Amino acid sequence: MASTSSFDIVSDFDRQELVNAIDQATREINSRYDLKDTNTTLELGEDAITVSTSSEFTLDAVNTVLQMKASKRNLSLKIFDYGKIESASGNRVRQEIKLKRGIEKDIAKQITKLIKDEFKKVQPSIQGDAVRVSAKSKDELQDIIQRLKQEDLPVALQFTNYR
C-alpha cells in the first residue's frame, strides 16, 4: 500500500444556507415587537451583508438574530467580519458585514507549521486559498482533522476531497 491519501482544508460556507438564514432573520425582525417599526433591512450582496436600521441598539439586536439564525443553519459565525457602524440618512445606522471565504496566507502558514510540528510523516502544502495535506496513512489524516478541530483559528475550516 504505497499510495498516498490526501484532503483539502478550505474555508467556505453554503451560500444557500446563508440566504435562508437571512430570510428567517428578516421574518423574525419584521414580527418581533421591539424591532417591528424600525424599518430594518438586510441586503445580501456578492461578498457582504448590509444591515440598515434605526439605531445602534436595534443594530445589536438584529446582529444577534442573524447570528442565531446562521448558527441554527450550521453556518460558522467566523464567516462574519463586522465593519464599523456608519451613520446613514434620516437618523439611521448602517453596518457592512463582510463574508470571509478562503484561508489567508498567514493563517495557511500557521496551519502548515502546526501540522509539520506535530505530524512528521505528513506533507502539507498551500494551494491558493486552501491547504492540501498528503500522507501514506489515512489514520494520520484523521488525527490531523481532529487536531485542527481543537485549534481555535480565526476562520471556519472544512475538510474536503478526502481521498
Rank of each mutant, 00 (worst) to 15 (best):
S134R: 13
K116I: 05
V62E: 08
S3C: 08
N39F: 14
L157S: 01
Q150I: 05
N161S: 09
Q150Y: 07
E28I: 15
Q67G: 12
R147F: 06
D47L: 10
L44I: 06
L153W: 00
V10E: 13
G45N: 13
S87Q: 15
Y82E: 06
S31N: 08
L157H: 00
S6H: 14
E46T: 15
I145C: 03
V155N: 04
D60P: 01
A130C: 00
G83D: 12
D106N: 10
D34E: 15
T112W: 01
Q123A: 07
G128V: 00
D129W: 00
V155S: 04
G102F: 07
K36T: 06
L44V: 04
T112G: 04
N30E: 14
V122P: 00
T160L: 01
K149G: 00
K98A: 11
R147P: 00
Q24M: 14
E17R: 09
R101Q: 11
I9V: 14
I103T: 07
I22Q: 06
A2K: 14
G102Q: 06
F13N: 05
S76P: 04
V65A: 05
S125L: 02
F57E: 09
E28S: 10
K78N: 10
I85V: 15
E28V: 13
I22R: 06
K116D: 08
A2H: 14
N39P: 06
A25C: 06
N30T: 01
V155C: 01
A2Q: 13
T112Y: 00
K78A: 03
L75G: 00
S52K: 15
K116C: 09
I145G: 02
D152W: 02
K98W: 11
K72W: 07
A156Q: 03
